[in-house]
Design a protein around this nucleic acid. Sequence first.
DNA 1: CATGAATGAGGGTTCATTCAT
DNA 2: GATGAATGAACCCTCATTCAT
Lengths: 205, 205, 205, 205
Amino acid sequence: MPEERPRRRQARGERRIAEILDAAAGVFAEAGFERATTNAIAAAAGISPGSLYQFFPNKAALAQALADRFVAEMAAAHRAAFDGTDFAALSVGEVADRVIDPILEFNLDNPGFKALFARPDMPSDLAAAAQPIQGALLGRVTAILAARVPGMPEPDRARSARVLIQIFQGMVPLVVSTPEPERPAVIAEVKRVLIGYLASIESLK
Amino acid sequence: MPEERPRRRQARGERRIAEILDAAAGVFAEAGFERATTNAIAAAAGISPGSLYQFFPNKAALAQALADRFVAEMAAAHRAAFDGTDFAALSVGEVADRVIDPILEFNLDNPGFKALFARPDMPSDLAAAAQPIQGALLGRVTAILAARVPGMPEPDRARSARVLIQIFQGMVPLVVSTPEPERPAVIAEVKRVLIGYLASIESLK
Amino acid sequence: MPEERPRRRQARGERRIAEILDAAAGVFAEAGFERATTNAIAAAAGISPGSLYQFFPNKAALAQALADRFVAEMAAAHRAAFDGTDFAALSVGEVADRVIDPILEFNLDNPGFKALFARPDMPSDLAAAAQPIQGALLGRVTAILAARVPGMPEPDRARSARVLIQIFQGMVPLVVSTPEPERPAVIAEVKRVLIGYLASIESLK
Amino acid sequence: MPEERPRRRQARGERRIAEILDAAAGVFAEAGFERATTNAIAAAAGISPGSLYQFFPNKAALAQALADRFVAEMAAAHRAAFDGTDFAALSVGEVADRVIDPILEFNLDNPGFKALFARPDMPSDLAAAAQPIQGALLGRVTAILAARVPGMPEPDRARSARVLIQIFQGMVPLVVSTPEPERPAVIAEVKRVLIGYLASIESLK
DNA sequence: CATGAATGAGGGTTCATTCAT
DNA sequence: GATGAATGAACCCTCATTCAT
C-alpha cells in the first residue's frame, strides 16, 4: 500500500495544522490579533517558529486559515440548526431556541473567534472569509422569513434578516461577558428581543 | 492686556491638542490602534513626531485623551437626548427617536470611536474611561424603565436596561456600514426592534 | 552521544555571548557607555541588532553582564596574586610586585573596564557588581596589613587599606596613558609610592 | 557716557553666562554629562532653551566653557597656593598642606567638576582645556622638586612630578566620597602618602 | 521536514538644536 | 535679546520572517 505514506503524512500535517490553529486561537483570544506574536503561537503549539512557516506563509495566512476553520465550524453549527427543520411550523420561541442556542454556544466555546473577527482593522481578505457563513446565515434567515411571512416584499425581507442577524450578533458580547449565574436570564432576554421583532414582522401579516 | 498672551498660548495649545486628536482618530479609524504609528498621527496632524510628544507622553496617553474626548462628546450627546425630557409622557416611538438618533449620528461622525473602544486588547484604563458614559447611559435607561414600568422588579429592570443598550450598540455597526440610500430604512428597523422590546416589557404591566 | 547537541549549542551560545561582550567592551571603551549604541555593538560583534537582544534583554543588562565578567576576571587576577602567598614573609617590594603587576596588566588589557566603571552616572546595580571585588580586595589588603603590622588599631588599618587601594587605582590611568618606553619607569614609581606608604605604616611599629 | 550701555549689557551677559554655567555644573553633577539635557540646564538656569543657545552654540561649547571656568578657578587656587611661597624653606608637611588643602576644597565645592573631567569619553577639546592647569601644576611641582632636590636628573623630576600629581588627583574621589566625621583622617593619610613619596625622593639626595 | 538562531525593517520615544513670534 | 514650540535625526528595542544545520 504505497498510498499509505502520503496519506499518513497528510494526516499528520493536518493534525499539526489543527494544533497550530488551536494555539493561534488561544493566543489571539488572550492578546488580540496584533499583539499576538507568531513566536508565541508557535510556542503554544509546541513547535518552532520555522515550522509554523512551513504550514502558513505568514501571519495573515494563519489568521485566514483560522477564520476559515471558524467559518466551517460555524457553518456546521448552522446546518445542525437549520437543516431539516420546518421553521414555518414552529412557534417563534422554538425558532429562536433552534437558531440562537448553538451559535451562542459556539461563541462561548471559541473566545479566539471574537479576537479575529471583531478587530477594527480587519483586512478585506478576512472579511471575505466570513462572507460565506454570513451569506448562508442570511439566506437561511431569509428563508425562514419567507416561510413565515409569505407576503413580505423581498427588500424588506432581506433587510429584516440582516437586522435579525445583527441583533443577535450584537448581543453575543453581552452574553459572553455575563458571568454564569446571571447568564441564562440574559439569554432569555435576547430571545425575547428576537421574538418580539419576529412577532412584529409577522403581525404585519 | 498682559493676560492675553498665556490665554492665547493656551488656546493655541488646546487647538493643537484637538488637531492631534482629530488626526489620531482618523489614523486609528483607518489602521486600527495597533497599526497606527505615532509618526503617522503626527504627519496627519501636520506636525513632527517630537511635537506630538510635547502634548502626550506616549501613545497610550494619546489614546486615553482621545477616549476621554469621545466620552465627553458622547456624554454631551446623551445629555442633549435625555435631560429635561419626560420619557413617561412620550410614546415608545418618540422615546426611541430621542435616544437613538443623536447617538447614531455621533457614531457616524466619529469613525475613530470604534477603533479605540472595540479593540480586543483594550487596556483597563481605557475601559475605565468609557465606564462613566456607560454608567450614565445605564442609569438613564433604567430611569426611563422605572418611569414607564413602575412595577418592574429592580434586577429585571437593570437587566433589561443592559439589553436595550446592547441591542442598540450592537446595531451601530450595521447602521454605519449600510450605505446611504438604504440607511434610513435600517435605522427605522433598529427602532422597531427597540420599540418592540420596550413594548413587550410594558405589556407585562 | 545525544548530549553533544545541547552542549555544543550552549557552547556556541556562550561563545556568542563572549563575542558580544568583547564587542561591547571595545565600543564602550571607544565611545563611552552612553554614546555606545546597541546597533554599533551588534555590528562590532558581527551580528544583527535583533540577535543581540536574544542574549541580553537590554543595554543595561549587557553592561551588567560585561561588568560581571570584568569582575570575575579581576577576581581571578586577585586570587592569583593573593592566594597562597605569605605576605608577612615578603619584603615590601615583593608585596608591591605581587599585588600591582597583575592588576595593572588587567587594566592595560581591558580598556572597556574604565568606560563601564568610571562613568559618572553609574547605576547602583553596576556599582553593586563591583562591590564584591572591592570588598575582597579590601579584605586582602587589610589582612596583609594585619600580618605585617599586628599592633595597628583596626580603624586605622581599614583606613590605610582603603588609602592603599585608592592610591593604586588612582595611578592606573597614569600608567595606562603612559606610552610604552616610559611606562616601566612610571610603574616603578607607583610601587615606590606604595612601598613608601607601607614602610611609613610599618615604622609606626 | 555712551560706553555704559554696552558695558552694562556685557556685564549682564556675563552674569547670565555665569548662571548658566552654575546650572550646568549642577545638572552635570547630578546626571552626568551625557544624561544632562540642555533643556534641563536651561530650566535650572531659569531661562529658555533658545536663550541658552544665544550664549553657547551647542552643548559641547557649554561644556567647554564650564571646563574653562573650572580651569580658571583651579588656576587661581593654584596661584594662591604656590605664588610667593619658598617651598625650599618649608618642611614637607607644610608643602603638602599648602598644595593639597585648597585643591581638595575646590573639588569638594564643585561636584560638577568631576562629571565633566572624569567622563570616559572626554573629547580631546575638553582635555585640551584642562591642559593649561595640568601644565601649570606640573611646572610648579617640578619647580618645587627642583628647589628641594637640586641634583635630580630632569626626566626623573618630570616623572616624579607627574606621579605626585596623579597620586593626589587619584585620591580626590576617596576624599570626596568619605563622609564628614572620617574625612579629615583620610586627608591626613593622603598627605602622609605624598610626604612619604617626597621624602623618599629627597633621601636620594 | 524540523529547528531555532539570525535577520533587519520599522516603531515608539528623546533631545540637541532652530526659528517664528 | 528672549521665548518655547517645533523639528527630525537617531536611539533602543520588537517581531515577522528566513535559512543554515
